[in-house]
């Protein structure tokens, strides 16, 4: 149902957001209906309530929330909108769950162009539709010029969990295998290549993608033998494995030669003095899997388009210092430590 009396046509081509669009008045409704409802269009939003009701099945549900402040807003392989959908879907999916609904909240800087906002909203809508997830409620705020960097988005996701699944870091056990779903560092390098003071030519695009479908085939293959899954976003694989090591009171031993990194990403990291294992990903996952099932889960991953470069990169070991250690491709050994300080701020 549309509330026609509020509508005047937004000048998408030339117009921009001003403070009236955040005032809660007619302009706010015009923006919400004319831009967000157009992009997200679904039966829940069409009822124009401040919330949406949906049916709940028996069993356990999963909920997560995330904020997106990436700079630049548009980057090779996506933009802040598709990232805000994929990122939150992935956080739900890492529990082994099927994501169902999203809520989206926008903080927009005065002067932000409608054309760019529409591009962001359209890509959110497209990403959600492709993933079979609905954006069913949201909020819009406008702040004065200089109080936000164009646009910040916050999304909350809800999903359902199959019976018998309880993925969590403390379930990792000595001997478990460490699987990654593909090449590391693509997102971070794609963002860097567009940073104002770095801008370099590279063929790498962000790996931003919704991983729940890949997760579903992994769960079908490995079930509860998948101990934990994480998407290695900020801080990269290094941060994710160090987190799991501390939460499980174990250590990890990795084989550098087994870790997939695209040559162009490796070259960009080499130039900028970065470690690809610290660089963010937005369409990759790490799974810690019981050794007996690791091959079956890996085969299922490789058979999926988002996991075709999946690899077994190491194992969980006893280590009361909870270190992530790696045999280097050169034949020596080293620690893979957490990232210290800011390597690259506002990557997602």
């Amino acid at each position: 149902m549309r509330v026609k009396s509020y509508q005047r046509k937004l000048d998408i081509k030339n117009g921009c957001v001003d403070l009236s669009h955040g005032s809660g008045g007619r302009a706010t409704t015009q923006l919400v209906l004319g831009l967000f409802h157009e992009a997200f269009g679904n039966e829940w939003l069409a009822r124009c309530n401040d919330q949406s009701a949906f049916g709940v099945r028996s069993g356990r549900m999963v909920m997560t929330t995330d904020s997106y402040v990436v700079s630049p807003l548009f980057f090779p392989g996506g933009n802040i909108g598709s990232l805000a959908v994929h990122g939150t879907i992935n956080d739900v999916a890492m529990a082994g769950a099927r994501p169902l609904y999203l809520a989206a909240s926008f903080i927009i800087e005065e002067g932000f162009r409608f054309s760019e906002l529409k591009a962001v909203a359209d890509s959110m809508g497209a990403a959600a539709r492709a993933a079979g997830v609905h954006i069913i409620t949201g909020d819009t705020k406008v702040v004065e010029r200089g109080k936000a960097d164009g646009l910040f988005i916050s999304t909350t996701g809800i999903g359902v969990l199959a019976a018998g699944l309880d993925l969590s870091a403390e379930r990792a056990t000595i001997g478990d295998r460490v699987l990654v779903s593909g090449s590391l560092g693509d997102h971070g390098v794609a963002i860097m290549s567009r940073r104002q003071n770095l801008a370099f030519q590279i063929d790498i695009v962000s790996d931003s993608a919704a991983l729940h479908d890949l997760v579903a085939v992994m769960v079908a293959a490995g079930g509860a033998d998948i101990r934990v899954m994480r998407d290695p976003t900020r801080g990269g694989l290094a941060a994710t494995l160090n987190e799991i090591a501390h939460q499980s009171s174990l250590g990890f031993r990795l084989q550098e030669e087994a870790i997939p990194v695209k040559p162009a990403v490796a070259a960009a990291c080499e130039l900028l003095g970065l470690d690809p294992l610290h660089v963010a990903n937005e369409g990759k996952l790490v799974a810690i899997v019981a050794p007996d099932m690791a091959d079956a889960v890996l085969a299922a991953m490789k058979a999926h388009p988002l996991g075709c470069d999946a690899a077994d990169i190491g194992e969980a070991v006893a280590d009361h210092h909870h270190l992530v250690q790696m045999s280097t491709s050169f034949g020596g050994g080293r620690i893979v430590d957490w990232l210290s300080g800011e390597q690259l701020p506002r990557i997602c």
């Binding site: 270190l323 080293r334 620690i335 430590d337 210290s340 300080g341």
Partner: peptide, 26 residues
């Protein structure tokens, strides 16, 4: 530590302390 450096050798990745802490303390 690299998060709370007291001396400069713990800051740069080329510093002896930071390099040893980050890669070699194992």
């Amino acid at each position: 530590t690299p998060e709370t450096p007291t001396g400069s050798c713990m800051v740069s990745s080329e510093g002896a302390c930071a390099a040893h802490w980050t890669y070699g303390r194992g």
